[in-house]
Nucleic acid binder design. Structure first.
Length: 211
DNA sequence: GACCAGGTCCTTG
DNA sequence: CAAGGACATGGT
């Protein structure tokens, strides 16, 4: 990674923090956040929230309940998030993995973050972003979530590194605490939603960094 | 009706 | 490795 990329990213992060301040982002209990991490794949958060309401109504919000729940019930509850058949399968895989390997969410407490990440990546349907979302937002670890917005923003500011490298760069400049990790990812997504539509790119709040 | 959304997996070149 | 398609509903 180039030195200038780190400097740029560091600058971007502090501008975003100044602009957005503290954002309430992805609250909730551990298991629900893990479920949400899968449901939000390529999907708007508002639709995920509706699905979570359905799941709560059926008592299907814990991994234990999903593990033993009916596939049909799960599919029905999450239909509004799209890709519902794939996602139901992914939820089952995650539940089976966590129950089988750790006996439940609480069993993961003593596993080091890096090891847990590798473990999550073994689950079919959990890629890098979902694994990091679970680590950061469900398990309060310091593993930064790089998503499409992060990559888009970086490209837009002339930082050419792709996702894997971006993760290293960002983790390299952030204070090593979970709060900073959560907030920074939240800032990037808010920035992306508000300013990264093609039409609005000229009004981008980071315009001063371009060039 | 076209196009996109806080991805991941599988197949091809 | 990069690129393209499949998975699917809901909002603009």
């Amino acid at each position: 990674m180039s030195e200038s990329s780190s400097v740029k990213i560091n600058h971007i992060i502090s501008l975003l923090t100044d602009h957005f301040g503290e954002l309430p982002w992805w609250p909730g209990q551990t298991d629900e956040v893990m479920v949400g991490a899968i449901l939000t794949q390529q999907t708007r958060w508002e639709n995920v929230e509706r699905a979570l309401v359905h799941l709560r109504g059926k008592g299907l919000c814990s991994l234990e309940a999903i593990y033993s729940g009916e596939m049909q019930e799960i599919e029905e509850a999450i239909r509004c998030t799209g890709f519902y058949r794939v996602k139901a399968r992914r939820l089952k895989s995650l539940a089976a993995h966590v129950m089988g390997q750790y006996g439940g969410t609480s069993g993961m407490a003593d596993i080091p973050t890096g090891q847990l990440r590798e473990s999550l990546l073994e689950v079919s349907g959990i890629g890098e972003e979902t694994a990091d979302s679970i680590l950061c937002y469900a398990l309060s670890r310091t593993s930064f979530v790089v998503d499409a917005y992060t990559e888009r923003m970086a490209q837009c500011m002339g930082v050419r590194e792709r996702r894997g490298e971006l993760k290293s760069i960002i983790e390299g400049v952030l204070p090593k605490d979970n709060y900073s990790y959560r907030q920074t990812h939240a800032h990037i997504v808010e920035y992306g939603k508000k300013f990264c539509g093609q039409k609005r790119c000229s009004e981008c709040i980071l315009l001063s960094l371009k060039g």
